[in-house]
Write a protein that binds this DNA or RNA. Structure first.
Lengths: 228, 228
DNA sequence: AAGATTGCGTACCGTACGGTACGGTTCGGC
DNA sequence: GCCGAACCGTACCGTACGGTACGCAATCTT
């Protein structure tokens, strides 16, 4: 269910060998291309030129492989920290727009969509899939933890900075972020998850982001901020 | 891939026998309980006390069964038509709140979540799953068509009515609906799809709905409407 | 240089599931 | 009262996949 090997070999970001990372990359390719059913142990082994035995040694079992795929991909996304000081009216708006576009870009990425589909497909009503130990995290949880939580942090710090600079007014930063998120994403994410072509939607991203930011500033902006 | 039988027997809403509807109901139960992997042909047959042969006769193959499940469930949801005339300020707000609550209730329903997970899990990058005929619609498309499109229609007519009564101001009704949807749902739907417990979230629905409507009226309300 | 470790390739096993076939039974029409 | 259709229950088949075992080459250790 999780990575085992942790030898002294040159390791990548997490406790992953270069080789293992390459294997996960192959697996992600397969997933993007053919969905969950395409990620068979034999298929991954063939695509990555490794043996099934190594797969099981490294990742425990198929679920461990899937978890590792999520962890690996999530590890690649690094949030750009925003320098909070010297926040002007224009600056805040620009930062918000940039965030909106980034968010839409991330959510519409092939790999992101594939991983979300995977995690959602595994999920069952009561959580807690067949997996062994009770301490085992669900793929959905994992994705949420390492994915959106991360990107949400970036947004909330930005919002806090805006408030501290007297440009925004709100009580609960998380709630304000929720509103911002809703204004930006609306149902676009779900539509893409259901198969809508992301390329067709990407054309609207710029306009969508602008409108969302404008609306957000109308709702939470202070004074001149709201006129934008 | 689709319903075949259309005999003279007493049919339900669509071209479905009572018996067939009962079978689909069983299948939905199984899906809610155990996710997609629990919906095996043998399992459905056992749960519904029917033979596999009948399943294949009625629904063609497993995909046909899954499609039929979506169609059947979607057919049960009937949108409450809103009488557009005599729309007052209070009335519009009440209608919007009611819509918001209904939307959240629908999206957080066990069956809805299970079906969305199913459709999303089947989806692959290029759409068009292995299924035979090219005219075959994806489960995702089907769900979108019969599900949200339907509920969206109710909202847009409400919004149009509000505009006609001079209470709302917007250019594109669909865009306004998108904003409303985003304000109401934010990322709650996705979180539930990923396994977050719906019961825990339902407690916040009322507050969330109110806030969303207030924000929406701030953005699109005319005059006194926006003060609510 | 000899032994150990790692890992590839392949073959193998058990199982579970999609799909089909068949015998027996109930029910409606004539 | 007979015939046929629909249908249930079960048994069956082929396959595909998860997981394990083994033989052998390459690389590392001492």
């Amino acid at each position: 269910m999780q990575v085992v090997e942790e030898s002294a070999a040159k390791v990548n970001g997490a406790g992953l060998t270069e080789r293992q990372s390459a294997v996960l990359e192959s697996a992600l390719n397969l997933l993007v291309e053919g969905g969950e059913k395409a990620v068979t142990t034999a298929g991954v082994a063939r695509a990555a030129n490794c043996s099934k035995e190594s797969l099981y040694k490294w990742f425990g079992d198929r679920d461990g492989l899937l978890s590792a795929m999520i962890g690996y991909q999530a590890g690649k996304v690094r949030t750009v920290e925003v320098r909070a000081e010297t926040l002007t009216v224009e600056g805040l708006r620009r930062h918000l727009s940039a965030f909106a576009l980034d968010l839409l870009d991330v959510l519409s990425g092939d790999v992101s969509l594939a991983l979300n589909r995977l995690a959602i497909g595994q999920t069952v009503r009561g959580e807690r899939r067949g997996g062994a130990a009770s301490g085992e995290a669900t793929l959905g949880r994992l994705l949420e933890e390492r994915g959106r939580r991360q990107i949400g942090r970036r947004a909330t710090t930005l919002l806090e900075a805006g408030r501290k600079a007297g440009l925004l007014a709100f009580e609960d930063a998380d709630e304000a972020y929720g509103t911002l998120y809703g204004l930006i994403v609306t149902d676009a994410h779900l539509r893409m998850l259901l198969g809508e072509d992301p390329r067709a939607m990407k054309k609207e991203f710029a306009g969508r982001a602008e409108r969302a930011v404008t609306s957000f500033l109308t709702l939470y902006g202070v004074g001149a901020m709201a006129d934008a």
